[in-house]
Amino acid sequence: MSSHFNESVVKFSETTLSRYSKFSVFLVLEPPSVLCNSLFVFYLIKDRNLRLAIHHHAILALLIVSLLTNLIEIPRILHYLRTGSVGTHSSISCLLWQWLDYLFYGQANLLMLWASFERHILVFHGYLVSTSRGRLLIHYLPLLFIVFYLIFFYIIVIFFHSCEKQFDFTSPLCGQPCFTQYPVISLYDLFAHSWLPTFFITLFSVALVIRVINRKRPVARQDIPWRKHRRMILQLLSISTLYFSCMGPYTLIQVIDSLIGLPSTAAYIKNVYLFYVYWLLTLLLPYVCIGCLPEVTNKIRRQVKNWNNRENMIMPTSLT
């Protein structure tokens, strides 16, 4: 994931036991996570009502990023944790891994940031997206900007930046991208795509709860369909709680490390364990969505129930 870590600390601290403990956790979580993730993406796209509901779009984009991470990056990480080496020892493979990792990490942060901000618009200022022009300007264009801006940003800084590209095949991501050696670009990447999103995701989520409590008081009560928005609010709070639980400690320790440095114990925890929290987040996200996307979960349950009923109807006939 997007990180600026001390590779010598990783090599010195990483042990076979620490690698295999993370390998075991990821290996257990990945198959059901990929299955759930695929089903959520499939039904959110297939079902017309779910597809047209704009409050699902940011979460759908986040689930797509999560699915791509679990399908592309997690197998690479599992191979590294099992063997202590990257799978393919080539420059282009390392560049692609670095680009995809930084891209998915940045998109997940900014999409989650936009989802937490957009909930305020959808709940309290729904009239802004009540027209086609409003939905285009306020809803669709920000999502498209996040996706394409990060694609081109990381293409430029990873593939075309005029820095000396060196790879370490015994480190995750083959080491750091060379652009992280330049303080201006590196700090911009950290601030814009990691630190500020984590801070504002927390701020917007807490502010949403406070605004809902204040608006539901009898004195401030307005004509807002709270039952309609209840699921939308709970959906955001469930995912943002998972996000902050995983990314909050890592972001905080990153900031401290950049400002004043870390003692050896904290550096060990950061580089050996917290470095992997984004991948853990993408594996846990589909499990959280089981509870916060009941529209999709209920459709999956009905489909499974229909399959079971068909099997029960066919079996007695075949036996007869």
Rank of each mutant, 00 (worst) to 15 (best):
H4W: 10
H4D: 12
F5T: 09
V10D: 01
T16C: 03
S21L: 12
S24R: 04
S24T: 14
P31D: 06
P31K: 03
V34W: 07
V34D: 04
N37V: 00
L44N: 13
I45P: 00
A53E: 14
I59L: 15
L62H: 05
L62S: 14
L63K: 09
N70Y: 04
L71M: 14
E73T: 11
I74E: 05
I77E: 14
T88A: 08
H89P: 02
C94M: 06
C94R: 00
W99M: 08
Q107V: 05
L110W: 06
L110C: 10
L111T: 08
L111I: 15
A115S: 13
R119D: 02
I121P: 07
V123N: 02
F124R: 04
F124A: 04
H125F: 14
L128V: 14
V129Q: 05
S130T: 07
S132C: 10
S132A: 15
Y140I: 08
L141T: 11
P142L: 07
F148W: 14
F152L: 14
I158A: 04
F159R: 02
F160W: 13
C163T: 03
P172K: 00
G175H: 04
Q176A: 15
P177Y: 00
P177M: 04
T180E: 10
T180S: 11
Q181N: 15
L190K: 14
H193K: 13
S194R: 13
T202Y: 12
V206K: 11
A207H: 14
K216L: 11
A220G: 09
H229I: 03
R231Q: 12
M232N: 10
I233F: 05
L236I: 12
L236E: 06
L242I: 08
I253P: 03
S258M: 11
L259N: 05
L280D: 01
L284S: 06
V288D: 09
C289R: 02
R301C: 11
W307P: 00
N308C: 13
M313T: 13
M315Y: 12
P316D: 08
T317Q: 15
S318H: 14
L319N: 08
T320Y: 13
T320E: 13
T320N: 12
